[in-house]
């Protein structure tokens, strides 16, 4: 029946809400639902066309009811599609705020966990087939990140996405998990090469820790 596919999609969204990661985008179902809407629209247009634009619902309640059912099914499909995408974008926005970038999203799939991604916020290093995002969602994340960066740029002395826990020590020991290149600190330049260990100011490396380049040693 019409609307069943939409239901399936919303059930996926329901599961997504409880998950830590984002499951792959359901391209197939989304496409099937848009097709369903197009069919329903064609159906409704055909009915209306036979009346030459002078349709009187009270004269023909059966046809009016058919049109109503078509319309309600389309409306339902639309709601399911929008809710599904909204659930996913909510999740993506949350991830952007917590400092994961899009290459981390792909890295959630275990087979993709190789350390050859270059650059801090490199968005293109994900090859399309393994990404759990649709191309539109990747674009959304990119633009949302830009937006957030611009917003954060208004305050230079406070990091809006920083940790809310007060630090116990100003300086911490960190181990480098992935090559991250050179970083500039108040105390000079540090070259972060894999497997090396440093004693650095926590504020300087917080971003790199949350991105998974460095590991904090207690």
């Amino acid at each position: 029946m019409y609307g069943d596919l939409g239901n399936k999609l919303v059930q996926q969204a329901k599961r997504t809400q409880k998950l830590e990661h984002l499951p792959p985008y359901s391209t197939e179902i989304v496409r099937a639902i848009t097709r369903e809407v197009r069919d329903l629209d064609k159906d409704a247009s055909n009915i209306l066309q036979s009346f030459n634009g002078s349709f009187d619902p009270s004269a023909d309640p059966a046809t009016a009811c058919t049109l109503l059912v078509d319309h309600l099914c389309m409306r339902r499909d639309k709601r399911c599609l929008l809710a599904y995408h909204r659930t996913r974008t909510d999740k993506l926005e949350e991830m952007v705020w917590s400092g994961n970038d899009i290459s981390d999203l792909a890295a959630q799939q275990p087979k993709n966990l190789n350390g050859n991604q270059e650059g801090g916020s490199d968005l293109v290093s994900v090859d399309g087939s393994s990404s759990s995002l649709s191309p539109e969602e990747e674009e959304y994340v990119r633009q949302y990140s830009d937006l957030l960066a611009a917003y954060k740029g208004q305050w230079t002395d406070i990091d809006l996405t920083g940790s809310l826990d007060p630090p116990r020590d100003l300086f911490i020991d960190v181990r480098v998990l992935k090559d991250a290149g050179e970083i500039q600190t108040e105390y000079g330049t540090i070259n972060l090469t894999k497997n090396s260990q440093f004693y650095v100011r926590q504020g300087d490396v917080e971003r790199l820790i949350s991105q998974g380049y460095l590991q904090k040693l207690s």
Partner: peptide, 20 residues
Amino acid sequence: YYDIDAILTDAQKVPTTFEL
């Protein structure tokens, strides 16, 4: 409008009798 649970609630079936 976007509430997932509200959408699933609306998917539950109700006995409906057609009058025409």
